[in-house]
Amino acid sequence: MKIIQHIFKDIKLHRLFLDLSLLSAKISLAIIMATFRMIVPCSMKRLIGETVLITGAGHGLGRELAIQLSSMGCIIVCWDNDIDSNRSTMREVSKNGGEVYGFVVDVSKRMEVRETVRLMRKVGVPNVTMLINNAAVLYHKPYLNFDSDDVEKTFNVNVLSNFWTIEAFLPMMLMKGSGHIVAISSMCGIYGVSQKVAYCSSKFAVRGLMEALHEEVRLDERKPNIHFTTIYPFYIDTGLAKDPKYRFPYIFGVVTPEYAAREIIKAIRRNYTEYSIPRCLFSLNAINRIVPENVMRLILDFLANVDQKQKEKDTMNAKLDLIKT
Rank of each mutant, 00 (worst) to 15 (best):
A34C: 01
L61S: 07
S161Y: 07
E258D: 14
I264G: 09
V52R: 01
Y275H: 15
R289F: 01
V182L: 13
H6R: 13
V52I: 08
F282N: 11
M210E: 03
V159P: 03
E211Y: 04
M33F: 04
I75E: 03
F169M: 11
I32Q: 12
I166V: 15
I31G: 00
G179K: 09
M296P: 00
I3M: 06
Y272D: 11
S28G: 07
G208N: 07
K245A: 10
A304M: 14
I277H: 01
S178W: 02
A286I: 00
E50K: 15
L240W: 01
A136Q: 01
L20D: 07
V105W: 00
H214Y: 09
P171G: 10
F17V: 13
F17H: 12
S178M: 11
N162Y: 14
A241R: 00
E211M: 05
S108T: 09
H14K: 10
Y101G: 04
S201V: 02
S178C: 14
S94R: 13
A212T: 15
L53D: 01
I277N: 06
F8W: 04
M44R: 14
L22D: 09
I265Y: 04
S24Q: 12
R297F: 14
R270F: 05
C78D: 01
I299P: 00
L300D: 13
A135K: 04
L298D: 05
F36P: 00
V107N: 06
E152K: 14
Y191E: 06
Y232Q: 09
S185Y: 04
K9N: 13
A205S: 15
D301C: 13
K242Y: 04
P244N: 01
E258W: 03
F252V: 13
I287V: 13
V151A: 14
V113L: 10
K122H: 08
I265Q: 07
G179D: 09
M90S: 05
V128N: 06
G56E: 01
S185T: 14
E216A: 12
L284R: 04
Y139C: 10
F234V: 10
I32V: 15
D314Q: 13
V151M: 11
L174Y: 02
G177R: 09
V107P: 02
N158T: 12
E293I: 12
F282M: 14
V77K: 02
N86G: 08
F204A: 06
A286M: 03
V104H: 03
G73M: 10
C188L: 07
E216N: 04
E115S: 12
G192D: 04
G97W: 03
G208M: 08
L69V: 11
Y143A: 15
F8Q: 09
L20E: 08
N86I: 08
M187I: 15
M316L: 10
K313D: 08
T165E: 02
I39A: 10
G102Q: 07
T51L: 06
E221P: 08
I231T: 11
L65S: 09
G208A: 08
L303Q: 08
T51R: 05
D307C: 12
S28P: 00
N145I: 00
K45M: 14
R222M: 12
N317R: 12
L53G: 01
S148E: 06
A241T: 10
